[in-house]
């Protein structure tokens, strides 16, 4: 808990939640499976559930535990998005470079995410299926420009050929660390870098201190 939300004792230890968002069939799960494959022998791949994955990364002095959450991408589950990405530190917005529509869907997700999480989460737009370069319909420069315009990074990958995956996850991890450090500098004290509903919490935090004082006196009385 403290690793996820506060700066306390464990310096250099992070735990981040990353959600994979994107339309169905853009390769969210194969991307994840490929990433898992680095860890396990290929024979076991079929026994791995490809919807939740925890991976530990070492980035210099920092150790990052990544929780990677796959989400259901079908249109009918779109409304459930907020439940999925609540409290996440980063999001990979995945589209299929051969499918213009999936790219448009990414834009919708970005708008939603920025509304819900504000600037607290790192966004990376991911163009997947780089192996199908010849069938590309989404222009790379267009995608890069779009990513820039929404203050997100842009990466291209191929789950099939295992291109750019390790880099992708390393990149998002270091970006999340940066963001986290920045928010800590700004707030200048223990603050939660993730979620939005902090105002009331702080108010009650004080009460909790009072409560604690009460505890001690209560104990004395006893």
């Amino acid at each position: 808990m403290e690793r996820a939300t506060t700066s306390a004792s464990s310096e250099g230890e992070f735990r981040f939640k990353v959600v994979l968002l994107g339309e169905g069939a853009v390769g969210k799960s194969s991307l994840m499976l490929r990433y898992v494959e680095d860890k396990f022998s290929p024979r076991h791949v079929s026994t791995i559930q490809a919807s939740f994955l925890s991976k530990r990364l070492d980035l210099g002095d920092n150790h990052v535990d990544l929780d990677i959450w796959d989400t259901a991408g079908q249109e009918k589950y779109h409304a459930l998005g907020p439940i999925y990405y609540r409290g996440s530190h980063g999001a990979l917005l995945i589209y299929d470079i051969t499918d213009k529509r999936s790219f448009e869907k990414v834009k919708i997700w970005v708008r939603e995410l920025q509304r819900a999480l504000g600037e607290t989460a790192v966004l990376i737009v991911v163009g997947n299926k780089l192996d199908l370069e010849s069938e590309r319909t989404v222009d790379r420069t267009e995608a890069i420009q779009y990513a820039k315009s929404v203050n997100a990074e842009y990466v291209e990958t191929s789950a099939k050929e295992n291109l750019g995956l390790a880099d992708l996850f390393e990149k998002i991890s270091s970006l999340m660390i940066d963001k986290w450090e920045k928010t800590r500098e700004i707030s200048g004290r223990t603050s939660q870098n993730s979620s939005s509903s902090n105002g009331s919490r702080r108010g009650i935090q004080l009460v909790d201190e009072q409560n604690d004082a009460a505890q001690r006196t209560g104990k004395c009385c006893k």
Partner: peptide, 26 residues
């Protein structure tokens, strides 16, 4: 505890259960 439902496998599955519940209701 927050870490139970925000991270890890249990958090993921709990979130999915919440999603499923939401979907059934809506």
């Amino acid at each position: 505890l927050p870490h139970r439902i925000m991270s890890g496998e249990s958090g993921y599955f709990f979130t999915n259960l919440s999603c499923a519940l939401q979907f059934v209701q809506d």
